[in-house]
Nucleic acid binder design. Structure first.
Lengths: 159, 159
DNA sequence: ATAAGGTTCATACTTTAGGGTGATTTTGGC
DNA sequence: GCCAAAATCACCCTAAAGTATGAACCTTAT
């Protein structure tokens, strides 16, 4: 209960704490400047600017207007012979529902790496790679990694 | 509308409430410490809230609405379309000392067949395929069938 | 707030792959 | 015919791959 509540509202709590610290800082500053009353306008102006900035920062933080990458597949005429360029068949990838991570694992598989080596390369556990590879096999409708690599190459999913 | 607005700005509202509570707390502390300047604290607090709200409003007003991502997919012409013949690198084959049978096994490996399936295909026993594959791995200087397939393709030993 | 998908990890289990060793039988060339 | 290489097969063992199930966490979409 308690940890879940904290994790859910940790942002809010953090903001609250930051605000508290800020206000105490202001209070301290005020005590230092309490004698110079005639500078109160400057003080208030600073507060206004500070809190306006805080508000802007808050709004930007809480609303995620993340700009997503727009991927446009252009019509490509394959370079016959010399050019060894690889153009991934994004249509097949999305049709099969392969995720980015699964693609990564698939590529490393194609390079002949063992599950253990893939795990080390991607900084995850062996079990994770097993899960990914199993999902890849399901989605590609194959039974073995060698089949997966072969099929993926035929479909131009990997080079 | 209303419920979505609340859920979207839940954090902001919560922040406001926290601010109010904190301000009252500060007020209480101040009463304990200094009796003067009541009006000024309220004034500053109001300014803080006001300008925070202003900042939030400004940010929300000035940030553009969420960008809709559109992924356009066009036809990609694959290298497999036209007649692309494979010319085996006989020099590499003889250099590595690969026998015909070993080449057969290697090709079937590349098609994703298991040792059991290769054995059935070639009408030999599983142990025989194991022996062949082990020799292939030795000669190719690899440790796994996936590596063998990758290396063999790079060397144009198999298509 | 809820739902859904993606990533991560674990445990237990079965299957396959691969290494090592030794052996027998074909086969092609001298 | 003899010999070397190739091809065949067996047994044992370890390592790796793969299956099944459940779960936690996070991001994103609704």
């Amino acid at each position: 209960m308690t940890p879940s509540f904290f994790s859910k509202h940790k942002h809010t709590i953090l903001y609250g704490v930051c605000l508290a610290v800020l206000l105490f800082l202001l209070k301290w500053l005020e005590l230092r400047l309490v004698i110079v009353h005639h500078h109160m306008e400057v003080y208030i102006g600073a507060i206004a600017i500070l809190f306006t900035a805080l508000g802007i920062w808050l709004a930007l933080k809480l609303t995620q207007p993340k700009v997503k990458t727009v991927v446009v597949e252009k019509e490509v005429y394959l370079p016959e012979g010399n050019g060894r360029e690889f153009t991934q068949n994004a249509a097949e990838v999305s049709r099969l529902g392969l995720s980015n991570r699964e693609l990564e694992v698939l590529q490393l598989m194609a390079e002949g790496l063992s599950n253990q080596e893939i795990a080390a390369r991607l900084f995850v556990s062996l079990n994770t790679i097993k899960t990914h590879s199993s999902r890849v096999f399901e989605k590609l409708d194959v039974k073995r990694r060698t089949q997966a690599v072969d099929k993926a190459k035929r479909l131009s999913i990997i080079p």
